[in-house]
Amino acid sequence: MSDADNREEIIQYVPFISFVHPSFWHTLTEIKLNIDKLNETSKPIYGRFTYRDDIGAVFEVDGTSFNKVPETEHLYTSVKGTIINKNTVEEFKSIDKAALLNSVGKTIWENLKEGTWIDKPSSLLNFFIFSFADLKKFHYFYWFAFPAPSQPTVYLTRKGSCITSAFTNKQLEDLAQSYKALDDEQKCFFSIIKENDTIQVQTLAQFLRQTECHLAINAVYFVFQDPSNGVNPGWALRVFLAALLDYCPTLIGCNINVIGLRCNIFGGVENSCIFSVKIPVDVTKSDAAGWVGWERNDKGNFGPKLANMSASLDPVVLADTSS
């Protein structure tokens, strides 16, 4: 490895780009008008992202997001989230966005501290939509957030390199097979132990709960489903690393191997990416740090996006265009 490859840079997580299918607004409108009415309680919803290597870090919601049970889709991961829909535009504007995100973050962190995520890693993933629906004009203001603690700040000693540089074809096949056999909720985050020619896929519970770990840390790979398809890891890694460091403080000061799992449409994993993450000795703990994750809008600013659905929802417009 040359010196140029060895330079340490602050890790750059690729943020999600939200994508809302029109059916989402139609269903939201129906629920708001017929069920929720003036009730402002937040609702559980589902979103999804893919770790297919031919789609970027898109995070989607649609009409099925309001289903009681999320759809399971090949190569897509369902994420449980919340929609907080405000009744008035004033309230939508005036609320303290930083405080809102921090309060959501605090709840996430409290749950995380209980350690249930080790048995159910999928619970680490989270998102919420803060919205206001103007049902007179059928304008929908919405703002996605993907909460993650702003600390710890970790470093990449090397930009992502292709998994084929460290794994043989046989190992990749084994990985693809063992990955398929995992339970859905274990698939988001798991670990691989690589010894000589063999690899062994372990759930986080299996790996983190074993009493004695005599393994060298460089034989261990932490794997996450990577929504990114570039040289940087996707946003999903961020909360995983925070949780991992909180649970295993022994990792502080270490270099750890992380694999961003990226599949092609046939389920092959050879386009996955390996990241060498360096955790500095003087790392800041997540506990007291603030939370980040508000999505930037199309102009790159921090503000909501607007969906104008009058063309398909406003009865007046519909009547005009159908004549």
């Binding site: 750059q12 997580y13 970027g56 995100l101 702003s150 700040t153 570039g230 980040v292 994750g293 921090f302």
Partner: peptide, 14 residues
Amino acid sequence: LLDEVDPSTDLAQR
């Protein structure tokens, strides 16, 4: 927002 000064967000795509 804290996001504005976050050093770990990849802005390259934008």
